[in-house]
Design a protein around this nucleic acid. Structure first.
Lengths: 185, 185
DNA sequence: CACAATTAAATTGCGCACAACTGAATGACT
DNA sequence: AGTCATTCAGTTGTGCGCAATTTAATTGTG
């Protein structure tokens, strides 16, 4: 089955915080058969989280196309970005940069190593730690990635300032959500 | 291993569209060991896509906590939202609403059916299609979900107008990225 | 020094996202 | 009626994301 292009435009964008009290909604003007349409809240097209996830998946899709040449997935690309920037990194630090734990990184790094882009070696100083180092081939790949950011930026259709602003909001959002999840636990 | 809390504040937020030409960067002011730090572009903390993905995952994490009671995952919750809103839907339409294909929906719906929240039945009118209908239990679950949107909205720390604005930008971004991916294919 | 607590990475298991493919049903067109 | 492309759901296989557990090394404390 083909992945559908888009759910279409969203009528009333909110998170779902309309003044509806938590109760069964009244009679429906529109006509959905058994359950009334969620009158106030609980409407899919009101959820920012869904828009956020959709945008993230759309990014992923574009990267998938653009990274095909390089033989990388998007998460693998992020790992290589971190290594290009910082050189050798222990798995721990890599996880901090990428917000990933060893459960995700271990198999991913194993694949990058199999592809010859990365080398893993237990640290001599601390035998628990594993240092991840880009190979020559991994470093060489960087040159082929240099054009990507601009192509992506163009694809967004956003201006640089708008992108910066969006990024700042998202980072703020992430911090707030993390805090809430921690408190809720 | 514990998932790390946050990569920390990002120095220069952009997509990675600084005026750097596509070539080997010059000498490094800072001192990362083997490969120079990506001077202009190619810096992880410059990528909106990463902030976007992080925010999406943070949302997911909060939902994971809040949905635990209901026995739903976040994608399953989105499916139930669509069913609460529209009643019975063929898999095809569900996929359009959620931007998912049958490869994802089929096993997910199978799990929802096993949980007793949903019923699947081949359409009499078109034997290819499968109608997904919320069960009584599935409809009853809605009442327990009514409080969620407000809790989520509060957790974002955003005002309603700011949320609307963010959502609008994200939808615009998704459209642009989808178009770019299609052209790039 | 001994020993408990902590830390790092890996492994296991589950669920989602997506590409590629299969098989069945439908519709269009001759 | 008969063929053929299309559409729909499902399956298979790969790769993430994350919880929970395991194993090993290190650190802290008495």
């Amino acid at each position: 089955m083909t992945p559908p292009p888009n759910p279409g435009p969203a009528p009333e964008p909110t998170v779902a915080t309309s003044p509806e009290p938590a109760a069964v909604p009244g009679p429906d003007p529109a006509g959905a058969p058994p359950p009334g349409p969620a009158v106030g809240t609980l409407r899919l097209d009101q959820h920012v989280c869904f828009s956020l996830q959709s945008a993230s998946r759309a990014f992923n899709g574009l990267y998938r196309v653009l990274l095909k040449d390089l033989g990388l997935t998007y998460p693998q690309y992020l790992v290589m970005l971190a290594l290009w920037e910082h050189g050798t990194l222990p798995v721990r630090r890599l996880g901090e940069h990428l917000r990933l734990d060893s459960g995700t990184l271990s198999p991913l790094l194993k694949r990058l190593e199999a592809a010859g882009l990365v080398h893993r070696e237990r640290s001599a100083r601390d035998e628990r730690s594993v240092e991840v180092r880009p190979t020559e081939e991994g470093l060489a790949l960087r040159e082929r990635a240099l054009g990507l950011p601009r192509r992506i930026a163009t694809a967004t259709g956003f201006g640089l300032d708008e992108i910066q602003d969006l990024k700042a909001r998202l980072d703020r959002l992430t911090t707030a959500l993390d805090a809430a999840a921690a408190n809720e636990a």
